[in-house]
């Protein structure tokens, strides 16, 4: 995967280059938007990581320029500000996701994977399947094999979200956003508590575990069979 990073701060640039390269991706790094825009005209990238605040042309202006020039590559904005206005402004300018510094590398990687894979048009599906797991989204019901899982509405939604991203790491903050709609981080173990209840129903009664905890970053569901 081709990743374009535009970041003016040297420390973050080094951290991103190293981390994303180790994830097995091809990373192109620039410290200001101008050469990045030239690069974008020359070749295709799968995802762009764009710092919002840079001297000279800032990230938002660069983003507007790109979108104006017809570049549809998914963009993740990095910012030091966490205000809701800033987020709304960022998303309105054409960003696909928004990450507040400081962030864990695993969080960024999870979001890159989720975004690069995102289809152009999101289709509402009526069911999801993952091995023996079957989610009927109309009846809001989940089965593993023949056993209907007795899930609370939150557990159901949690399962639905991680199955949508099967095979990828879904982070705690991604779950807070997608399942609860919270943009803040409760200091209690909200996600862990509900996740352990879901696992008690989804995995415990069976021989194999579908949900894995990815240490220090989040959760991943896969087909164990």
């Amino acid at each position: 995967m081709q990743v374009l990073v535009v970041e003016d701060e040297a420390e973050t640039r080094e951290f991103l280059t190293r981390g994303l390269s180790e994830a097995g991706w091809d990373v192109t790094v620039h410290d200001n938007p101008q050469p990045a825009l030239l690069d974008l005209g020359a070749r295709r990238f799968d995802v762009i990581i764009l710092d919002r605040m840079m001297p000279g042309m800032d990230g938002l202006s660069a983003l507007k320029l790109m979108r104006g020039a017809g570049v549809t590559t998914p963009v993740i904005l990095l910012t030091a500000m966490s205000g809701i206005d800033d987020r709304v402004e960022g998303l309105e300018s054409g960003a696909d996701d928004y990450l507040v510094k400081p962030f864990a590398l695993s969080e960024l990687i999870a979001r890159i994977k989720s975004i690069a894979r995102r289809p152009e048009i999101v289709e509402e599906v009526n069911e999801r399947r993952l091995g023996s797991l079957h989610i009927d989204r109309l009846a809001r019901q989940a089965r593993r094999g023949d056993v209907v899982l007795d899930l609370s509405p939150i557990e159901y939604k949690l399962l639905d979200v991680i199955v949508e991203h099967a095979g990828e790491v879904v982070t705690r903050s991604m779950l807070l956003e997608k399942v609860w709609g919270y943009r803040f981080d409760p200091k209690t173990s909200l996600v862990q508590t509900h996740m352990s209840r879901l696992r008690a129903k989804l995995d415990k009664p069976f021989d194999t575990e579908m949900i894995r905890t990815v240490h220090g970053s989040g959760y991943m569901i896969h087909d164990p069979d």
Binding site: P153, L190, R197
Partner: peptide, 13 residues
């Protein structure tokens, strides 16, 4: 209500 539902398991634990 949503919030109370979400937090109920934490109180249980």
């Amino acid at each position: 209500q949503d919030m109370a539902d979400s937090f109920a398991p934490l109180f249980d634990d």
